[in-house]
Design a protein around this nucleic acid. Sequence first.
DNA 1: AAAAATCGGTTGCGATTCGCCACCTAGTAA
DNA 2: TTACTAGGTGGCGAATCGCAACCGATTTTT
Lengths: 153, 153
Amino acid sequence: MGHLHEDMREIAQCGLPSALEVMGERWSFMILRASFNGIRHFEDFQGQLGIARNILSNRLHRLVENGILKREPVPDDRRRVEYRLTEKGIDLLPTLVALRQWGEKYSARTQSSLTIVDARDRKPIAPIRLHAADGRPLRYEELDWEESEKVGK
Amino acid sequence: MGHLHEDMREIAQCGLPSALEVMGERWSFMILRASFNGIRHFEDFQGQLGIARNILSNRLHRLVENGILKREPVPDDRRRVEYRLTEKGIDLLPTLVALRQWGEKYSARTQSSLTIVDARDRKPIAPIRLHAADGRPLRYEELDWEESEKVGK
DNA sequence: AAAAATCGGTTGCGATTCGCCACCTAGTAA
DNA sequence: TTACTAGGTGGCGAATCGCAACCGATTTTT
């Protein structure tokens, strides 16, 4: 009694848990951001993030095994290896940007360093928000939650 | 040498670290999602998420002290306490949805339970993506990174 | 009025995970 | 042939996680 949504039990899987399985680990988002910034090599990740080498090694492997980064040796120099974003990794950009914008909105320090701009007019992109299926932006008050059991589509 | 972006050193703070300080901890996003689903009470969070009580207690306090949730006693029953989203917490919805949509796109299991719909036509919201300042949606290829030192605005 | 249940925690304690530091191997440069 | 670089791995103490038991303040039930 008192439950708003009676029939959801325990987890109500919504894709969040599976997303967090990888991205919920410490450093994952920071590594991802570095990747978007063009970082590709182990030593560069390490230097830029200040992360311990064993942790970095572990995270890179987990990101690779989850298809977010791909690891490929550099032909010219067989010591070196490149970690680059896959399409799956690139698809995390909206999440990353939303998180970053939120952090910037609520932290004292002004935004800094690289910002993402529209290549056309070089103006910064808009704050990320929710949109209706037809593209109309939606405010929080215009939303509702619906129980969609229909797995079909 | 070899650096794509010479002048950014070490961290290149972008609001991400400050965002992750709270939301990077285990369970934070799951708790947030439960909040959006209407969960407000300790026991309900615990039951729904299956999280250990001490961890839950710790996370709730951290979310409160960071202004994401507010904790207020229930007048009618002085045993009970309510944890509710603040505006700052509500502002995390785009991040949460983006993460969830990504998880759903790349995990086998179909989406489930509560989905967010446009209250007007009750159709599910659109996938989250980046938009230009004028509202035009942007593809990844249309983006560029710019060094914006100008703190002014 | 007394006993039982509920709610929101806290405390111990073992199991993981994190993070610093040293070290190692293959490949390249001097 | 010696030195250096890139990308790791291993040991070990410190911090965090998670289970289970317990607790104090309040209702609820009997």
